[in-house]
Deep mutational scan, measured.
Amino acid sequence: DWREIAKLAEEALKKQQPVTVNGQTFNDPNEIKKLLETAQKAI
Protein backbone atom coordinates (compact mmCIF):
# COMPACT_ATOMS: atom_id res chain seq x y z
CA ASP A 1 0.00 0.00 0.00
CA TRP A 2 1.51 3.31 -1.13
CA ARG A 3 0.17 5.18 1.88
CA GLU A 4 2.08 2.86 4.18
CA ILE A 5 5.22 3.22 2.05
CA ALA A 6 4.95 7.01 2.14
CA LYS A 7 4.61 6.92 5.93
CA LEU A 8 7.64 4.64 6.29
CA ALA A 9 9.73 6.77 3.93
CA GLU A 10 8.84 9.99 5.76
CA GLU A 11 9.78 8.49 9.12
CA ALA A 12 13.04 7.11 7.73
CA LEU A 13 13.98 10.56 6.42
CA LYS A 14 13.10 12.24 9.72
CA LYS A 15 15.09 9.73 11.76
CA GLN A 16 17.78 9.47 9.07
CA GLN A 17 17.69 5.70 8.99
CA PRO A 18 17.25 3.09 6.26
CA VAL A 19 13.82 1.88 5.23
CA THR A 20 12.87 -1.54 3.86
CA VAL A 21 10.02 -1.77 1.36
CA ASN A 22 8.96 -5.04 -0.29
CA GLY A 23 12.21 -6.66 0.85
CA GLN A 24 14.33 -3.87 -0.65
CA THR A 25 16.35 -1.68 1.71
CA PHE A 26 16.96 1.98 0.94
CA ASN A 27 19.88 3.57 2.84
CA ASP A 28 20.49 6.64 0.71
CA PRO A 29 18.34 9.66 1.69
CA ASN A 30 18.08 10.61 -2.00
CA GLU A 31 16.65 7.19 -2.83
CA ILE A 32 14.26 7.43 0.12
CA LYS A 33 13.09 10.85 -1.15
CA LYS A 34 12.50 9.35 -4.60
CA LEU A 35 10.57 6.51 -3.02
CA LEU A 36 8.47 9.00 -1.06
CA GLU A 37 7.75 11.07 -4.19
CA THR A 38 6.76 7.94 -6.10
CA ALA A 39 4.49 6.86 -3.26
CA GLN A 40 2.84 10.27 -3.05
CA LYS A 41 2.16 10.30 -6.80
CA ALA A 42 0.64 6.83 -6.57
CA ILE A 43 -1.77 7.70 -3.73
Rank of each mutant, 00 (worst) to 15 (best):
K33V: 11
A9I: 12
L36A: 02
K33S: 07
K41S: 11
N22G: 08
K14G: 07
K41A: 15
L8I: 12
Q16G: 15
A12V: 02
D28N: 13
E10W: 09
R3Y: 15
A9N: 00
A42V: 12
N30K: 13
E37V: 07
T38C: 08
R3C: 13
E4L: 14
K14R: 12
T25V: 13
G23H: 05
P29K: 09
V21S: 03
E37N: 05
K33W: 12
E10V: 10
A9W: 04
D1A: 11
E31V: 09
F26P: 00
P18Q: 07
A12G: 12
F26K: 02
I32G: 00
E10F: 10
A39S: 04
N30D: 13
A9Q: 01
I43L: 15
F26Q: 02
D1F: 15
A6I: 15
T20Q: 08
P18H: 10
E31H: 07
P29W: 10
I5S: 00
K33D: 04
T25D: 05
A9V: 12
V19I: 15
W2A: 04
R3G: 14
K15W: 11
E4M: 13
K33F: 10
K41F: 07
E37P: 00
L35F: 04
E37Q: 05
E31G: 05
A6M: 14
W2T: 02
I43K: 01
N27V: 15
R3M: 14
I5H: 01
D28G: 10
P18K: 06
F26E: 03
R3A: 14
T38W: 13
N30E: 15
E4Q: 11
I5T: 05
V19H: 01
L13W: 04
Q16S: 10
V21E: 00
L35I: 09
N30G: 13
I5C: 03
L35N: 00
I43P: 04
W2F: 06
I43F: 04
V19M: 15
D1L: 11
L36I: 07
G23E: 03
T38L: 15
N30H: 14
Q24I: 12
L13S: 02
E4H: 07
E31R: 04
T20A: 07
A9C: 07
L36H: 02
L36N: 02
G23L: 03
L35E: 02
K34P: 01
N27I: 12
Q24P: 01
E37C: 07
R3S: 14
K41L: 15
K14I: 14
N27S: 14
I5M: 04
V21L: 09
K14P: 01
K41W: 06
P29Y: 13
K7G: 07
D1P: 09
E37D: 10
Q40S: 07
E31M: 10
P18L: 04
V21C: 04
L8E: 05
L13A: 02
A9T: 06
A39G: 02
L36W: 13
A6W: 11
L8W: 09
E4K: 09
A9K: 00
E11S: 08
